[in-house]
């Protein structure tokens, strides 16, 4: 009896979630293939978007900025969190709290303040964006990674690796990252998606990226802008699917 009921509630939840996510996406898609005033459906908005000469430029720019953010995130967070979990477990609470700060600091204050703290090489170049995106996505990236690190006997594994002759770098690259692969991929996905969609900070600092360009072209061709948005939803998804499929899964191979 209770089993039937719990299955029923599961179905209700899944269906509500499905509707919640799919309905707006379906609606947006339907809108993006309309022919405007002439009526009927076609992919001409998509063709228009791809033919826009700035499309590729901004798409590529956002892509490499987001990729750089992912690299920075992994290079900073994986060693730092591993080291803290193993040697300074008491500091964890503090780091937990600190990682939430980007959520409560107003973006305006953050944009100005954080910019000052950046090294001169990247200051006032577009390279400052990945560093700032890194901080903005920290609350999510940190949590995704932390869950993965907590799920394994991290301290014992790190110490087993170190006493077998692995230095910290090799311990992280040959042991920790492969074992926490799922969490690392989640971190990559979150950071990439958040950086790719970042708008407020980018505009405040007067940089142009894909999202700011989309808002710009939307003033000219709304349906085209929606077509672009649909593509920006699908492209990262395909990319992430590709990453997780291509990353060798050593866990279950024989």
């Amino acid at each position: 009896m209770s089993k039937v009921r719990s299955q029923l509630s599961l179905i209700v939840v899944l269906m509500s979630l499905g509707i919640f996510f799919l309905l707006p996406m379906g609606a947006a898609f339907e809108y993006s293939i309309r022919n405007g005033l002439e009526g009927g459906y076609s992919f001409k908005n998509y063709l228009w978007a791809i033919r826009e000469e700035d499309f590729v430029y901004y798409a590529l720019r956002s892509f490499w900025l987001s990729s750089l953010t992912v690299v920075i995130t992994l290079m900073v967070l994986v060693p730092l969190l591993t080291w803290i979990h193993v040697t300074k477990p008491r500091v964890q609470g503090w780091i937990d709290g600190l990682s939430l700060l980007p959520l409560v600091i107003p973006v305006v204050a953050f944009a100005v303040g954080a910019q000052l703290a950046l090294p001169d090489v990247v200051k006032n170049t577009v390279l400052e964006l990945p560093f700032l995106y890194f901080i903005l996505s920290l609350p999510y990236a940190y949590r995704a990674l932390d869950i993965g690190l907590r799920a394994i006997p991290l301290k014992t594994l790190v110490e087993a690796a170190r006493s077998s002759g692995a230095n910290w770098r090799r311990t992280i690259t040959t042991v920790i990252v492969p074992i926490t692969r799922t969490a690392v991929l989640a971190t990559v996905a979150l950071t990439f998606a958040l950086s790719l969609g970042e708008y407020t900070l980018t505009v405040l600092l007067h940089w142009d990226t894909f999202p700011t360009w989309v808002t710009f072209v939307a003033q000219e061709n709304l349906l085209g802008a929606i077509a672009i948005s649909m593509m920006t939803l699908i492209i990262p998804f395909l990319l992430l699917a590709a990453i997780s499929l291509l990353t060798p899964s050593s866990k279950n191979e024989r």
Binding site: T156, E159, A161, S163, I179, R181, K251
Partner: peptide, 15 residues
């Protein structure tokens, strides 16, 4: 240090 260590808890690399 080249010291071989066996731990109380299971410590093999699962991957």
């Amino acid at each position: 240090r080249n010291m071989g260590m066996v731990f109380q808890a299971y410590s093999l690399f699962p991957n």
